[in-house]
Structure formats: C-alpha cells, structure tokens
C-alpha cells in the first residue's frame, strides 16, 4: 500500500539490519517475515500467551504488541541468539535436562522470558508474591511461577519449566 512504508534499523542477535517495513508491522512480524527468524512464535497476537517473548534492549517483552516502527534503533535478542555458537546457555541446557517441553511451541518464549526474568530477580526486582518489598527476593518455586505467569504452555510442561528455571538461577 502506498505511503505506509518506512525504514528502521534493528540490531538482532548482534547483527545490524536496515529494513523497509509496513508501518503497521509488529516487531514479531518483522522478525519472522522479514528476517526469517521463526523461533519467536505467534500464539495469540494479543499479549496473552508469551510465545512471542524476546529481549528488547535487554528486557523481556511481547514482540506481538510492540510496533516495529517504535523500536527503531533497538537491540533485540531472540531465541536464536541465546546460545553462544553451538554452546547452549545454562537455561537452555536445563530445559533439555528437565524435560521442560512437549510440543515445544511455547519454548522459545519461555526461554527468552526466563532469561529476562532471572536478570530482573538478580537486580532485586520484587514480584506480586514477594513478602518484604524492601528485601532482595528469594527465587523459590512460588516466585518463579508468579514471575513466569505471562508464558502459557498448552502442553502443561510447567513442572519441568519451573525445575529448569530453578536449576539455572544464579
């Protein structure tokens, strides 16, 4: 359509891309359609499932609700960028060891979300179940479940996911 194209620059998994996009595109569509990074999944396209979670300037975010044009200049890490070459991250290894998935559809979002969540907890951010808001939270199972509640798993692999996150926490 005329007049709706625009240019943005995104650094994705360490590589800079100059892109022409439809101004209406979500970050998720740009990652999947324009850059061929199909790890991030489109579950609901409404912020309700977390399958599209990426790290946006270092923080976990739902790529389906982020307008790509508003992210011009941002650094994005997708599930494809979590490993260091062939060396999986500790969290990725823990997901395999703990059987933290069945069909795997939610897994890229779970991995990006947990990566961001562990960073938030390390910085002392509280959650809705944190008792003493002024103390550093202790990342027990209740805390992990609450902090990961933005990521749904239709297969119900929650036991494995919680165990994997527990194992990977610093």
């Amino acid at each position: 359509m005329d007049g709706v194209d625009t240019s943005i620059t995104l650094t994705v998994n360490g590589r800079e891309h100059r892109l022409r996009i439809d101004v209406r595109s979500s970050l998720l569509d740009v990652l999947r359609e324009d850059l061929g990074l199909t790890g991030s999944k489109k579950g609901c396209d409404q912020g309700q499932c977390g399958a599209c979670t990426v790290l946006l300037d270092g923080r976990r975010a739902n790529a389906c609700l982020a307008l790509a044009v508003a992210q011009d200049g941002a650094e994005v890490t997708t599930v494809e960028g979590l490993a260091d070459g062939d060396a999986l991250s500790p969290l990725q290894r823990a997901f395999i060891e703990r059987d933290a998935f069945q069909c795997g559809y939610c897994t890229p979002g779970q991995l990006c979300s947990a990566t961001g969540m562990l960073e938030e907890a390390a910085r002392g951010w509280p959650s809705a179940v944190t008792g003493d808001l002024t103390a550093d939270p202790d990342l027990d199972e209740t805390e992990i479940r609450e902090r990961m509640s933005g990521n749904l798993c239709r297969c119900g692999a929650y036991e494995g996911i919680v165990a994997a996150v527990k194992e990977a926490r610093a």
Binding site: L56, R60, A61, M148, G150
Partner: peptide
C-alpha cells in the same frame, strides 16, 4: 498484580 512481567516492561 497486573498483566505480566513482559507487559509491565513495555
């Protein structure tokens, strides 16, 4: 208590 960790970041 609102939304999710991802949405609160945005």
């Amino acid at each position: 208590s609102g939304a999710s960790g991802q949405i609160r970041n945005q």
